[in-house]
Design a protein around this nucleic acid. Sequence first.
DNA 1: CTAAGATTCAAACGATCGTTTGAATCCTGG
DNA 2: CCAGGATTCAAACGATCGTTTGAATCTTAG
Lengths: 229, 229
Amino acid sequence: MNLHLRTLKPQHETRTRILDAAEELFMQHGFEGTSMRLLTSKAGVNLAAVNYHFGSKDALIEAVFRRRLDPMNAERIAELDRLEKSAAGTAPAPERIIRAFLRASLAMIEDAKGGGRNFIRLLGRAYTEPSKPIRALIGQLYGPAMERYKSAFQRALPELAHEELIWRMHFMFGTLAYTLAATDTVQLIAGCKPEDRYDAKLLEERLTAFLEAGLRVPAKAQSTVKKAA
Amino acid sequence: MNLHLRTLKPQHETRTRILDAAEELFMQHGFEGTSMRLLTSKAGVNLAAVNYHFGSKDALIEAVFRRRLDPMNAERIAELDRLEKSAAGTAPAPERIIRAFLRASLAMIEDAKGGGRNFIRLLGRAYTEPSKPIRALIGQLYGPAMERYKSAFQRALPELAHEELIWRMHFMFGTLAYTLAATDTVQLIAGCKPEDRYDAKLLEERLTAFLEAGLRVPAKAQSTVKKAA
DNA sequence: CTAAGATTCAAACGATCGTTTGAATCCTGG
DNA sequence: CCAGGATTCAAACGATCGTTTGAATCTTAG
């Protein structure tokens, strides 16, 4: 039966090559801007391989997201589980929750030579993608983790109205998505060049400080804000 | 030759119809996802009209951005001028600067029936657009306003290191861009529906409170963050 | 009115898109 | 070893893309 163990290596090698090439090219040229001919050429596989292994281009796009996003959000949830376990009943500080949320994304950025960095930038784009199915997929893959973090923040910030928290998480999500996606846009604000490669640890400190302050600040004119019927 | 004073109404009507249709379709389907045939059909003009009036599809994309972004950033700068004039030498409070920056974007959102709302969402996408020329154009159009606001913030927050400010403005920009672009993604965080139409005033309060807190918070471990310039 | 430039029109151009096909080749269980 | 499913391959499919063309129509100055 298993006399030849090497059978497992080439079994999915074509799939992996396609996914890797797709990750990079989708990031560089977008989904519609990446042709199957360019993609398969870069992957070193036949043109028909994508349709054979994935069925269609759309199915490939979904596979690209699932491959990274499933374990990423699982890790996000595991990180929160660990945090809450160690807090033993009491609500963890907002800063700890923020760091737990950021970690999975920032870890991927340090995976410089792997495709992690490419994917994280691709992901940042996907939130504002015109295509409905893609946005729906992203939402579906993020859903469970979002629910967990929402209730965690709710316990950590009990004085914040529910609707207010939703919006602030929305802001937080936007900051993270944009920061990771538009890396080379930093220099648009200043003549400052992107200089050195991303320092994930430094970025985590900056993001955490910024986001925690924004999340914790008391809502302005809460009374007037609440009334909006 | 072309110094003739023609009737102004029909002179640019085709151009305007094309720009309006492009604004809406680019938002719905993206740049590459919008074909000239669909676009000209929606605009009610001939297929060749785009190439006749704008030269190419890429030039049309640029015209779509210029039409709104030029006056928008001019207004942003005028708002800041007014603010600094009224402050008479002293540095305006960060909150005032933030509101001055947000106002131009939020005003467009209230332009519900006009294309303003469409454009503002389209703009949010452009920052993470794969196409280099588009990102370069956006950066060029935003440049002057960005410089002015950067020095305004620098005077208002003198204790903040230059590099730190750059990043926080980047975060701020991201929050705004994402919030405006991914409007229907709010419900991904909560089961909360987009409910009522955008209340620009309420959104301004929420954004200002969040952003001001994030901008003003002291930098963590400033000594280690500063490292070498 | 007439001539000439500005604009619109239907039609077609060549290129490229995602996908399909059927034969060739590889791999593996028996 | 051989049979048969899995995979790869070159080639082609029909559709759609952005753009171009040249004649028809509109607009306006003289």
